[in-house]
Design a protein around this nucleic acid. Structure first.
Lengths: 151, 151
DNA sequence: TTATATAGGATTAAAAGACTCCTTTTTATC
DNA sequence: GATAAAAAGGAGTCTTTTAATCCTATATAA
């Protein structure tokens, strides 16, 4: 498992939506610009998050993205797996055909354990918790960061 | 982090060497054939394992691979990181430049924890322990497996 | 000296990742 | 109903990584 750009962007997107008023439709462009996500790419990512039931996409004028789950009900695992698929650390566990060894092999047990631990850690991090640390989404802070980058 | 083929092969290679008599030089071809690793590719992988001080490569006739560490002193983490580099779950932690957010961000904390846990789990799995489960390296078992594949 | 082995640089093919483009469709508002 | 704003979604592109392989050079036991 490796957090791709898409996964990282998905986390940023949900983080931003969680920081807005509940049920508010936020234009895709706003999310993209605030969180430094390529806008078109966000379109694709949002679709995956929508399919996973995390947010809703509103089409047409005044459209945008709207969170449909409560911040304390979405976890990092939900968001990450929505875009990169179920987490596996190696092919062996995903496709047993890639390895002729039986699944009871001791090495597999270690990977199995590592994978379970990783997923558990991500599952225990809800966005409500993450948001307590304002630094990730605070508009002023983000604006400041962008200014600094221009120098 | 994602266990690549090279990483998987490295584990198989060390597993095999650990199953042989201590200090024995094993021809590369033998390791490759027994553990189903493309031989040339194993050459490259062995070089990385040698650089990491896990095994030694003996050149010339009667050359081959020789384990230089005791099976209870090598861990899955050692072998895996020898070929795929230090484990990181995301770019953010590896190159802070890929993310303008400060490292104290709550999301980073979660990834940091997940990464530490993963490395710890892999570090606690020594090859001596893994070898107790003979099924991974037992020559008869492996031969049996290969026969079954031909059908 | 010869046969057996690995070294190591170059190269390649396939897959994954990271996006962008562009035409169509949807929808609020005038 | 027309218009403009906004997302849908399929296709396409460029880059990087992965997974090897080839081939010439070098090392070494017998």
């Amino acid at each position: 498992m490796r957090l791709t750009r898409a996964g990282e962007y998905a986390v940023r997107c949900v983080l931003y939506l969680c920081g807005q008023d509940r049920g508010l439709i936020v234009p895709r462009r706003e999310v993209a610009q605030s969180m430094e996500i390529p806008e078109q790419f966000l379109g694709k990512i949002a679709q995956q998050l929508a399919r996973a039931g995390i947010l809703e996409i509103v089409q047409g004028a005044k459209g945008g993205l709207r969170l449909v789950v409560a911040p304390d009900q979405v976890t990092l695992l939900d968001v990450v797996e929505a875009v990169i698929g179920e987490i596996f650390l190696n092919d062996c566990l995903l496709r047993s055909s890639s390895c002729s060894r039986v699944n009871s092999c001791a090495v597999h047990q270690v990977w199995l354990k590592a994978r379970a631990q990783l997923r558990e850690t991500l599952a225990s991090a809800t966005f409500a918790e993450l948001l307590k640390d304002k630094v990730c989404v605070d508009p002023e802070f983000l604006a400041q960061q962008r200014l600094e980058e221009l120098r």
